[in-house]
Design a protein around this nucleic acid. Structure first.
Lengths: 333, 333
DNA sequence: TTGTAGGCGTTATCAA
DNA sequence: TTGATAACGCCTACAA
């Protein structure tokens, strides 16, 4: 391995001068600096980030710990965060907690051990323990899901989005929208259900528990829920579905019954997943500003970096608006 | 920050003893070891991975540099790699090169700087420069795409899969399958085209250049290509599509013309993306063993770790089989 | 403006 | 079995 010592020897200067040159400190004579740069290039010197981190007590790396890497919503957040980070000279490493608290805890530890400068986390549970990080002054930003601990947070206005979707279904002529939402353990699922209820109320309908199902955010559970609803005594004529994964299951069940969405049945789903625009019929969706959430999370991180713990601003919670994209699945036949 | 020094002081032993204890070296008296563990727990000691890495000249971390984080194929590889890594005591950090050679180069540098123990890479280009890593003895495994450099490689038998798909189309009764493949710069695209040709030949058909399009692996380009093909003088009656993203575009164009897949037109696509089972009609696909590829890549990494450069085995190339999953889109009306 | 030297937290060598 | 100590590569007072 080539070290600054080797470079110093070759350039005929001290290691201090090499270090200063490589870090663009102004106090180095241009001549010397040039010699250093040449020597470094000739030797193929690469800075040892580990040694630097040990000395500086921080790495120019952010960790993004996401709960489900296969979910396009989270990968879009990753893109947003990364684009910002790159512009600011940070690298982002992604860790996939896979909705598993143990994996999440492991990556939280990795982040701590490797002295990353900041962490963006979509926590598995509201009680996820980030104290080891915050105690060290490493800023943490929660995305998509809140954390009990007082940290900067980026959420989407799930309830408002759900309400808008529900009202839309009613406004175009559907009369009995059902709601298939996520597990009761998920804040987002609860919010979306609440929004659905508010939408009904706003249009003078009585929410009925018989039209609501919790389905784990998974396709097959949603298919089951759909079957149940349709076989019920007073079946729905349309569906508000709390994520795109579940929409897949709903679509499957509807098709197996020969029901066409946007004609026999209305449908609006959360998440503007890439495939939703291409199904037959294209899905009306509630688009979440995932990319922007990543950027915003990064900015929140930035605003705390290098600021001493004592005079850091109070935690901020930002709630971003969703956008209803009306395509064909919500059309009233 | 609590260091082993603090722990040593509290336990009334030397730092050496603390280090030995924490690393489970047998040579420590049980009594002392207990005192150390108690002290460490009381103080909330956490090992500093940076310092450890500096000393050991390696980190128990692998880097997975993938070319497109939004692609379910790559995220499945990530899952496989990670599951194996976790079992072996390694953590995996994911880096998204986003098909951008500059980003890839950056993450390759990050991997080097942070002294990861191994790198799994789906290279943007066959010529991606990994020499800084290999020179340091850091094992690199290429997945999905080959590298000019001599490294362990995990590929899928793309050509065989494409051939099987094409033969299947012909066998069920389609007579003029077209091929929409990826950019000529992509090995996988070339392989899949070659397989398509072989499939035709195997069934005594003459491949026609007029039935082949290169479409960048993107949906909109594939839609265009589909339109072109359909408007041609001697239009195809079916399609072999080289990835699922493009299948989306093909589907869209077909629908806009009132054509139903599995009835008016045949279709088989590469990639068993989650949504492909749920479209109307469900897609017949060529399933790639992505998860297994991740596991295999990890095993190749493992087999080189700790083995001195001099007596490492020659690079190995593993080619995994695809599986044709026949659903409805390839049915002949 | 440049150089010397100390230390970041660990592990490993060598004596005791 | 234990402890003192020297690295690992870098940055930055401090001194010159």
């Amino acid at each position: 391995m080539v070290t600054i010592k080797d470079v110093a020897a070759r350039a005929g200067v001290s290691v201090a001068t090499v270090s200063r040159t490589l870090n663009n400190q102004a106090t180095v004579d241009e001549q010397l600096a040039d010699r250093v740069r040449v020597a470094a290039a000739e030797l193929g010197y690469r800075r040892n980030g580990i040694a630097r981190s040990l000395r500086l007590q921080r790495a120019d790396v952010w960790a993004l710990i996401i709960s489900d890497i296969a979910n396009p919503f989270f990968t879009a957040i990753a893109r947003g965060l990364e684009d910002l980070a790159q512009r600011q000279g940070f690298s982002v490493v992604l860790c996939n907690s896979d909705e598993d608290p143990a994996k999440e805890a492991n990556y939280l530890e990795v982040a701590e051990r490797e002295q990353v400068s900041g962490v963006v986390l979509s926590p598995n549970r509201i009680g996820s323990d980030i104290s080891p990080l915050t105690r060290l002054g490493v800023p943490v930003v929660a995305v998509d899901r809140p954390l009990r601990a007082p940290v900067d947070t980026v959420l989407v206005r799930s309830a408002a989005g759900a309400q808008e979707a529900t009202e839309h279904l009613l406004d175009v002529g559907w009369r009995r929208p059902a709601c298939i939402t996520g597990p009761e353990s998920a804040q987002t699922a609860i919010q979306r259900l609440a929004g659905y209820r508010r939408g009904l109320l706003a249009r003078k309908r009585r929410p009925a528990a018989s039209l609501v199902r919790h389905a784990d955010y998974r396709a097959d559970r949603a298919a089951l829920a759909t079957a149940e609803l349709l076989d019920g005594r007073n079946p729905p004529d349309s569906f508000f579905v709390a994520n795109s994964e579940m929409a897949l299951g709903v679509l499957q069940e509807l098709r197996s019954r020969g029901l066409t969405v946007g004609e026999d049945v209305g449908l609006v789903a959360f998440d503007n997943a890439p495939w939703t625009a291409f199904t037959d019929r294209p899905l009306s969706v509630v688009d979440q500003p995932a990319y922007e959430m990543g950027v915003l999370a990064g900015n929140l991180l930035l605003s705390r970096l290098g600021v001493p713990l004592s005079d850091r601003p109070a935690p901020r919670v930002r709630r971003l608006r969703t956008e209803l994209i009306v395509r064909e699945s919500s059309l009233h036949g």
